[in-house]
């Protein structure tokens, strides 16, 4: 199997954006209950609209999903139509969610489709390297997001451990100094979030 530089990059980013949708929505689902009790309807409505659906906000769930779709649609021959279809379905679900009166139920379907996409990718993509790139993108994004979202030190340490295991399996060129730095950060008693972010963002040398 021959994989172009461009497609390697896309596979990695497909993993990253799909993870961004998943973790973003999981976190939103956890907070949704407390938002429900908020008295300020306007700010609550604005938050949901901005966080979930605003295409102009590059950090919104819809923007991340659209970027995942942009990568998936040009990878049909690498990942297959079946795997691609779950990203397409997730996009349909978020469009439905925006108009729905049962917002959270529709958003849960977006999560379902992202999880199905990962499962299908793992099961159906024959090329180990292509498969590994999606998983690696997912692991990088998970560490990055957890550090940015001030997740517990325990969670971040666990995700760094999963990332270091994954990266050595891909055969991809990576910055070994930054990997060692990440491992060292994970061994410290208190996690330094900004250093984790800096190390993980400079881990891959795909186009070098």
């Amino acid at each position: 199997m021959f994989l172009s530089i461009e497609n390697s990059d896309r596979l990695l980013w497909l993993g990253r954006y799909s993870e961004r949708v998943y973790t973003g929505l999981r976190s939103f689902a956890e907070k949704f209950d407390s938002i429900t009790d908020s008295a300020d309807y306007e700010s609550k409505y604005d938050f949901v609209k901005n966080f979930c659906f605003d295409e102009k906000n590059p950090s919104s769930i819809r923007s991340s999903l659209l970027r995942a779709y942009d990568n998936a649609i040009v990878l049909r021959d690498e990942i297959g139509s079946e795997t691609f279809s779950y990203v397409q379905l997730a996009l349909y679900e978020i469009n439905k969610a925006e108009k729905s009166k049962t917002l959270m139920l529709n958003l849960l379907k977006v999560i379902d489709n992202i999880v199905a996409f990962w499962g299908m990718a793992d099961d159906r993509i024959q090329d180990e390297h292509a498969r590994g790139l999606i998983k690696l993108g997912k692991r990088i994004e998970r560490v990055d997001l957890y550090a940015r979202m001030n997740a517990s030190d325990e969670d971040i340490k666990r995700e760094i451990s999963r990332l270091t295991y994954r990266i050595t399996k891909t055969g991809l060129r990576y910055n070994s100094d930054n990997l060692e730095k990440l491992k060292a950060l994970a061994n410290e008693e208190k996690i330094n979030h900004s250093e984790v972010i800096s190390a993980v963002e400079n881990l891959i040398e795909l186009n070098s």
């Binding site: 021959f2 994989l3 172009s4 530089i5 461009e6 497609n7 390697s8 049909r76 021959d77 297959g80 139509s81 795909l206």
Partner: peptide
């Protein structure tokens, strides 16, 4: 879809180069 079904690589112009009078696909 045809690339997926035939097993041929789907490429863009940037993935191909002419060298020594032959055409090559460049991988990652």
């Amino acid at each position: 879809y045809l690339a997926e079904q035939t097993g041929a690589h789907l490429v863009t112009c940037d993935d191909l180069t002419v060298e020594n009078e032959n055409l090559y696909f460049i991988d990652y």
